[in-house]
């Protein structure tokens, strides 16, 4: 296990009563969300439920208006992307932010190149990149010196994730990582997500593809209209209940799930 990571199941990031307003619009209200180390937490919600705002709050693109954020149990202020990156939070957005014309090693070290006498020191970078990819079991790329433009969608996603691992991140936020991928590519990325969690990283998987969620997630959190309506172990839910939570905020049709509703179903 990489050094400095928490034990599996320990709370890595906690949001407590986090609020976010845009003028009169309440984008997030009273979000209490826990993301644990060594597990995959899936954040589900329909369009406009507040998934993006949640990600952006955690990654420092806009700071919260109220509430508290705890990182490894300590209260922290995340007001800029730099703050979040310094803590060890990496967000892999859909557009991946890779340079197509650079190769895998160059992309993984972009902005943090190692130098010797002001000259790029390629050998240690290539070895570190290769080791990181091997640790993540990303073995399908033929050469780590091939340009990213020659990679498949799943491989590009792998490179983006490996880059976050290389930069000592502890929490990976993956925003709809499989949205643009075919079946085989999707399974490759989900495999990578599992491996991240097994290595002790915290993973927040933002997705409205419930197949993905039930394939890899350990925990589920459901957002609806800016409120967190449920969170807990994935074994407490099934597809039907998550869909109902996403659409109505409650599991009225089928009782007996013991859904630990957070924020509570206040409507209906």
């Amino acid at each position: 296990m990489p050094q400095g990571l928490l034990e599996r199941g320990q709370p890595l990031l906690e949001l407590r009563g986090v609020e976010k307003h845009f003028g009169p619009v309440r984008a997030l209200s009273g979000i209490d969300l826990t993301i644990t180390a060594g597990e995959v937490t899936a954040l589900c919600g329909d369009n406009g439920a507040g998934k993006s705002v949640t990600i952006k709050t955690i990654s420092g693109i806009h700071g919260p208006d109220a509430g508290q954020i705890l990182w490894r149990g300590r209260p922290v202020a995340i007001n800029t992307p730099r703050d979040s990156a310094a803590l060890g939070i990496a967000t892999v957005y859909q557009d991946l932010a890779l340079c197509d014309n650079l190769d895998i090693v160059q992309n993984m070290f972009l902005g943090r190149e190692r130098t010797k006498v002001r000259t790029l020191d390629e050998a240690p970078m290539e070895m570190a990149a290769r080791k990181t990819l091997a640790d993540l079991n990303v073995t399908t790329v033929r050469s780590i010196r091939q340009p990213v433009s020659s990679l498949s969608g799943g491989q590009r996603q792998s490179v983006a994730v490996a880059r976050a691992v290389l930069w000592n991140s502890q929490l990976m936020i993956l925003d709809e990582p499989t949205a643009a991928l075919g079946v085989a590519q999707t399974s490759m990325v989900l495999q990578l997500v599992r491996r991240l969690a097994e290595q002790g990283y915290g993973v927040m998987l933002v997705s409205h593809n419930l197949n993905d969620v039930f394939e890899v997630a350990d925990r589920v959190a459901v957002l609806r209209l800016g409120r967190l309506v449920a969170q807990g172990p994935v074994t407490d839910y099934d597809r039907q209940s998550v869909v109902e939570l996403m659409t109505t905020g409650t599991v009225a049709s089928r009782g007996g799930y013991g859904v630990p509703a957070v924020g509570g179903p206040e409507e209906n």
């Binding site: 399908t140 990679l151 498949s152 799943g154 491989q155 085989a184 590519q185 399974s187 490759m188």
Partner: peptide, 9 residues
């Protein structure tokens, strides 16, 4: 999950 040996080529 089967290892990806198809779509990526």
């Amino acid at each position: 999950i089967a290892p990806d040996r198809t779509a990526g080529g």
